Computed example of a mutant assay.
Amino acid sequence: MKKFLSVILSGVLAASMLAGCGGSGASSAPASSAAPAPAPASSAAASSEAPAAEPAETFEEVKLRVAYMPNMGSASLLVTARDKGFFEKMGITVDLVEFQGGPAEISAMASGDIDIAQIGHGAHALCAEGEAMIFEIDCTSLADAVMGNKEKGVNSIADLKGKKVATTAGTSAEIILNLALASEGLSQSDLEIVEMDANGMVSAMISGNIDACATWSPGTMTITTAMGDKVVTLATNNDYLDQATFPSSMITTKKYADENRDILVRFTRALQMAMDYRAANIDEIAKLVAKQCMVDEQTMLDCVGEGNWLTGEFVASAVKEGTIKSYYENQQKVFIDGGRLTEAVDVNNYVLFDVMEEAAEANAKAA
């Protein structure tokens, strides 16, 4: 009798040990012929020790047309989210559409040709004026520069007076030009301003059809490579970090934001996940951006230092602490000081901080 009880107890103990490892006594090992382990007891132990995993998130598939500009600051986060599967994880397929500037992107959104766009610093003034809504910060830019042709007598900012200078109105590069001119007591009225897109400025500078330009990478890299010692960089974002932050952002129309909040949150979740990957693998991403923009890899690799590549973790804390809000408030001050805006606007009117925060919280919960 004692031997019989001993066999039973040994069988029960063995079944309990298997259940504690998440397995089932009936399927993980053959039952003892002398004393089979009771299946109900094993199942109960398994359920108490190893609860079922949370079901994977599922989303209704959506396709979006998204505008970008062919440079690291504008394209890198979108390319990362697409090529590394973060958009797919959120049930999103993107069709990336290339533009040469933020104002043109906003016009395309207004006409319904584009759903979402990535803009640089300058186009944010249009958001403050009510033409678009910001729903996610991307990075802070260091990519703009004012460049002069030495052979045209341009060696300093002061030398720009009376010269033919190309820029693109409403862009971050124009803001740098204005700040540079102001440092010498000048304004655009002292120059011969020529309106050009980024590609046109590269050709015009190299051919000598203009004396100077205010543009951004990778055009700045192409100009430097082609002109060598003939070109001088007169000013960059770095020269004015004490006066302003130059954020780049993801935007959409107010109508789209009102009607598709869930999609914006999902899109933002993908972007915040992509931020972490981009920051940790910036050289790899530069090569992917080069492929997207159809330029050589070295050109984009030379541009990796032209942005502060924010992380999802930073955004999650910075939006709660008000740091990101201060970026947009400081940016608006630049527009007012430069005459681009006439008065201050509450940034809450055009920045959807709650979308950034909701996305960060959802990602933390899913981690």
Score class of each variant (00 low, 15 high):
F4M: 13
S6P: 00
V12P: 00
A15R: 11
S16E: 12
S16P: 01
C21I: 10
C21F: 13
S24H: 09
A29L: 15
S33D: 13
S33T: 11
A34P: 02
A39I: 09
P40C: 04
A41K: 11
S42Y: 04
S43Y: 08
S43E: 15
A44N: 08
A52N: 08
E57P: 10
M69P: 03
P70H: 02
N71E: 14
S74G: 13
L78P: 11
A81Y: 08
A81F: 06
A81D: 12
D83S: 12
G85C: 12
F87I: 06
E88L: 01
T93M: 01
V94S: 01
F99Y: 15
M109W: 00
I114N: 02
H121T: 13
H124Q: 14
H124A: 14
A128G: 12
I134P: 04
I137Y: 11
I137D: 08
D138N: 12
D138F: 10
T140C: 14
L142F: 12
A143W: 01
G148M: 08
E151D: 06
K152L: 02
G153Y: 07
G153C: 07
N155E: 13
I157G: 04
I157W: 00
A158D: 13
K161P: 04
K161R: 15
A166F: 03
T168I: 13
G170I: 10
T171Q: 01
A173C: 09
E174I: 08
E174Q: 15
I175Q: 09
L177W: 04
L179Y: 14
A180K: 01
L181G: 03
S183F: 05
D190S: 05
D190L: 01
L191T: 09
I193P: 02
I193E: 07
M196D: 00
M196C: 03
G200E: 05
M201I: 03
S203H: 09
I206N: 08
S207H: 06
S207M: 15
N209A: 11
I210V: 01
T220K: 06
T222H: 10
T225W: 05
A226S: 13
M227D: 03
D229G: 10
D229T: 05
K230A: 15
L234D: 03
A244M: 14
F246W: 11
T253I: 14
K254V: 03
D262H: 06
D262I: 07
L264R: 03
R269L: 06
A270K: 10
Q272C: 00
M273W: 13
M273Y: 10
A274F: 00
A280E: 14
A280W: 05
L288D: 12
A290P: 04
K291H: 11
C293N: 11
V295K: 10
D302T: 07
C303I: 07
V304A: 02
E306H: 10
V315I: 15
A318C: 09
V319S: 03
K320W: 04
E321Y: 08
K325T: 13
K325D: 06
Y328H: 06
E329I: 15
F335C: 04
G338L: 09
G338F: 07
L341Y: 10
T342A: 15
E343N: 08
A344F: 11
V347C: 09
N348S: 13
V351H: 00
V351K: 00
F353D: 02
D354H: 14
A359Q: 08
A364H: 10
A367I: 08
